[in-house]
């Protein structure tokens, strides 16, 4: 409860500071719409050339696209603005001040900033999910699963991003890791069945982007038989716990600015 209140305070302050740059926000509105249109166009290109992305109806493929957009929106909204600061704070030695605060260090590092330019992306992502969900005729249970799976997918995205960002304790300047991750989400915007087999394995087991986009869609659509989709919840929880353990482990190697 206390943490929820803190998050509220952080976000209000950070959003207020960012709203000074109103032009940036206005442009991001346009950019979000153009980007969504372009992604839809990308899906259209496959279907207009007669390829069904590995056995998906177009409405269902849009659901996958919606989840990709959702995770991407959280990258812009929360993960990028916050996690880039881990690397900055290690460089400047200001991480000390965070560790001294009477709040959980990982919590503080993860929610302190909010990138308001991510809001338009979040809105288009939700609109896309709503449209694709109703166009594929999701039953009530499907909608419920969609919601739960969306939370798990975002949690997984966060955990992987945080894990990689934590390595900056050793490598110091590693901000591009987060850029790398969000570009990988880009490549997971189509159902994994659409890709050649080695890529499919890579996206499931090496970089778990399958669990962020295709798996939630499979769960919501009830296509989860004989696939790994249900593992989403275990994978998300596992990565989250791992990210916490890794953060504590990394801090043991953090020799602050003056020591």
């Amino acid at each position: 409860m206390r943490y929820l209140r803190l998050a509220g305070i952080f976000w209000a302050a950070s959003a207020a500071a960012r709203m000074e740059y109103r032009a940036a926000f206005a442009v991001s509105l346009v950019a979000a719409v153009v980007e969504t249109a372009g992604k839809l166009f990308g899906v259209y290109l496959f279907y207009s050339n007669g390829y069904d992305l590995g056995g998906w109806r177009w409405q269902e493929a849009l659901l996958v696209l919606g989840f990709a957009q959702l995770v991407d929106a959280f990258f812009i909204l929360l993960f990028q603005p916050n996690l880039r600061r881990i690397s900055e704070m290690v460089q400047d030695g200001t991480l000390d001040f965070v560790l001294l605060k009477p709040v959980d260090g990982q919590f503080w590092m993860s929610v302190q900033q909010v990138g308001v330019v991510g809001f338009p992306y979040l809105v288009t992502a939700l609109a896309l999910l709503l449209f694709a969900g109703s166009a594929s005729g999701l039953p009530a249970g499907g909608w419920g699963l969609l919601g739960v799976a969306a939370v798990a997918a975002v949690l997984l995205g966060y955990a992987v991003a945080f894990l990689l960002a934590t390595t900056s304790i050793w490598f110091v300047k590693i901000f591009n890791v987060v850029y790398f991750l969000s570009s990988m989400i880009w490549s997971a915007q189509y159902p994994v069945q659409a890709y050649a087999r080695p890529f499919r394995l890579f996206m499931t087991f090496v970089l778990p982007v399958y669990f962020m986009t295709t798996a939630p869609a499979e769960l919501a659509l009830g296509r989860a038989q004989a696939s790994w989709a249900w593992a989403l919840f275990a994978v998300a929880l596992g990565f989250f716990l791992l990210s916490r353990a890794f953060w504590r482990f990394a801090l043991r190697y953090y020799s602050s600015a003056s020591s």
């Binding site: 790398f180 570009s183 990988m184 880009w186 490549s187 189509y190 890709y195």
Partner: peptide, 11 residues
Amino acid sequence: GGLVPFFFMAA
């Protein structure tokens, strides 16, 4: 991060 075109290639 620029490897994205290879995923489009895969599809």
